[in-house]
Amino acid sequence: MLITKMFSRQNLFLFLLAVMVLMAKLIPFHESYNRYFNLSAFIDWGIAGIFLLYGLKLDLKEVVKDIANWKLHVLIQSGTFILFPLLVLLFYPLVKDSGYVSIWLSVFFLACLPSTVSSSVVMVSIAKGNVTSAIFNASVSGLIGIVMTPLLMSFFLVPAEGSGHQGEIIQQLLIKVLLPIILGILLNPFLKKWVTRFSSAIAEFDRLIILLIVYESFSAAFTENIFASVPALVFLILAFSVVFLFFTVYHILGFIARKMNFRAEDRITATFCGSKKSLVHGSLFLLVLGIPDDQKVLFLLPVMVYHSFQLFYVSWLANKIAKRTPDVEV
């Protein structure tokens, strides 16, 4: 029943994402509205709040308890932060001198993101995988992503204004991401019960901030006619690229897991957790990394398409795997 409710909320969230895009088209948020409600400032504080709550929710005991299963953890994190970027990097020589480099960079941004947390754990649970290791890797992935995502992107992001741009990115990472997480971890022993009691409300706050980021970004895109630079062909290329990326990573991780003689439960966890990408982190890093306003929508599109696809397809796949007998190959 709990899992069914979670997926109904995920489906509602996908619907609300579409509503935000439609609202941005029909009722875009203009800068002049900030004198009534400063949306950008609210989102900035919301980003810090999300990572503060992330630190509060992080169960350090679970993290320590599952360290022994290190081969599985290495495979999952390697898939997330090495295999994904490497697969996209293979296509860089084909686009570096063309007009498609921005499209490539938006897919590379997706490839550099951490794994998602809640849906990874839920789907592993449905498929009867190793839930403890799923929790461990989903949590650790977010922490690793604080360093790895900006580091990987720094090789290709062009500073917008002078040499101070990288310093500003580091400052934003410290203020909006790292410090709130550290503060949350420090307050974890005192506020853990409070976080557990209001976990549903906290999850809704996460979604609210993401929806507002999508609304603000698409509002700017529609008011400045940025979609003229994202024609239907570009969208189709992005959609095909991210779906192809998912299946490639999923099957490579499954192949490696079998070669390493992992148990069926660990193979499920490796393929499910290692092939996920987080819309939460994608939306937040979009702002923290200082992506130019005229490119925000282009960077959001692959993340949103991937997020939607992984929810629908992997939920179907998890239920299919759950119905198999234990001796069937995963």
Rank of each mutant, 00 (worst) to 15 (best):
F91L: 14
Y92N: 03
L94E: 12
K96A: 07
D97R: 10
D97K: 12
G99K: 02
Y100F: 13
Y100N: 12
Y100L: 10
V101Y: 01
W104T: 09
S106M: 07
F109W: 12
F109Q: 06
L110A: 02
L110Q: 00
C112Q: 01
T116P: 09
S118T: 09
S119E: 05
S119M: 13
S119N: 12
S120I: 04
S120A: 15
S125Y: 01
I126W: 03
A127K: 11
G129S: 04
G129D: 04
N130H: 14
V131L: 05
S133N: 15
A134M: 12
I135L: 07
N137P: 09
A138P: 02
S139W: 10
V140A: 14
V140P: 06
V140G: 10
S141R: 03
G142D: 03
L143Q: 13
G145L: 15
G145F: 15
G145D: 11
V147H: 06
M148P: 02
M148G: 05
T149R: 04
P150Q: 04
F155Y: 09
F156Y: 15
F156P: 13
P159G: 14
P159W: 13
A160Y: 04
S163I: 15
G164I: 01
H165S: 08
Q166G: 07
Q171T: 02
Q172I: 11
L173C: 12
L174P: 00
K176W: 00
V177S: 04
L178C: 13
P180F: 05
P180Y: 10
I181Y: 00
I185C: 08
I185T: 07
N188E: 13
P189I: 09
F190L: 04
K192N: 06
K192E: 01
K193V: 08
V195F: 09
V195H: 01
V195P: 00
T196L: 12
R197F: 02
